[in-house]
Design a protein around this nucleic acid. Sequence first.
DNA 1: CAGCTGACTTGGG
DNA 2: GCCCAAGCCAGCT
Length: 104
Amino acid sequence: MELSFTRRVVEILNRIPEGQVTSYGIVAGMAGNPRAARQVVRVLHSSSKKYNLPWHRVISSRGYIAIKDPAGFEEQKALLAAEGVFADEEGKVKIEGFWIGYDD
DNA sequence: CAGCTGACTTGGG
DNA sequence: GCCCAAGCCAGCT
């Protein structure tokens, strides 16, 4: 059956391996619509805590942390660092490439 | 029902 | 490679 786009995004987020990061657009693409990156953002806002999602493993396609709120920004950096993924003050994540869903 | 929103993406200069 | 402008989608008010 067809789950809503949002629901699928939740499923995908739960499958992102530790130490890996992906972009909003990629998640959107895996969920079925590459153009719905903004919708992915909504999911993180509405269901991140509710579903215990690894929202910190999702960054912008440029490889930067995209959070506006400074507190959340720092929090994401910390969470990523805990998994071995480091980012500098600019929020630029130092990683080779994005997770594209194969590992699972 | 129409409009707004948002932690984005891509293309062009 | 950096900055700016326009585009896009699904859920909410």
